[in-house]
Simulated assay, not measured.
Amino acid sequence: MEKPSASTIGLASGFVEPLEATSIGQMLEQLRNFERIVTASNGVVSGFLIEGFNEANARCWSGIRDFLRMHYDCPRRDSAFWRDVGALPLPASYAELKQCFQQRTPRLVDVQDYAIHGWQSIFHVINWLFVAAPLGVVQPEAATAELASLPAVSRRRVATRMAELRRSSDLA
């Protein structure tokens, strides 16, 4: 039987620019899962668990990569930096999400597979929405159509909340 490769934790497992402090968050998630696995296995960890840890860690890093790539997915081209970023290909997984987000708002089901085997995602679906909407990754028409498809009681609640928000911003 081939011995599984060792797991890595912290910056040894990956690093991305510090836009969202992801390295710290990911390291904490790695440590949480390392402790969970070692404790549950009483220190006798199978190769299968090590493979699962590594797979989950890699999947989380893919989610982080896609989330951070979304930050740069905008029409801005006013400098060499933005022109270069705009010319970069999108990761396939993010490109597929973007296609969905052009037609509707992000859902938990869209991002839940970035966290597997008991891991927790660094970014919740609301984080995706908060970044995607202002960048135009989520089209306003898609969000409007989605709101229009809600039951009447839900539409009234949304309208009431929007009115409250407008009033509070007028007071500020």
Rank of each mutant, 00 (worst) to 15 (best):
W119Y: 08
V45K: 03
T39C: 07
E96L: 10
V111G: 00
I122L: 14
A163R: 11
K3F: 05
R155Q: 15
L108T: 11
A145I: 01
A152L: 15
L165K: 12
D113W: 06
G136K: 07
G25F: 10
A163P: 05
R156E: 15
C60P: 01
V131C: 14
R76G: 01
W61K: 05
I37F: 00
L171S: 12
G118I: 01
A87H: 04
T105W: 09
G43Q: 02
P89Q: 13
R69G: 06
S121N: 15
F81C: 04
V109D: 15
P151E: 15
W82Q: 05
W128T: 00
S79P: 07
A143G: 10
V153Y: 13
Q112G: 03
K3G: 01
S93Y: 10
I122F: 11
N54H: 04
L88Q: 15
T144E: 14
I64Q: 06
M162E: 13
D113A: 07
I116Q: 00
C100H: 13
M162D: 08
Q139E: 15
A172G: 15
W119F: 12
L88D: 15
K3P: 05
S93C: 09
F130S: 12
S46N: 05
Y72E: 06
V16H: 13
L135T: 07
V137Q: 06
G52I: 01
G52V: 02
H71C: 06
V109A: 15
P140C: 11
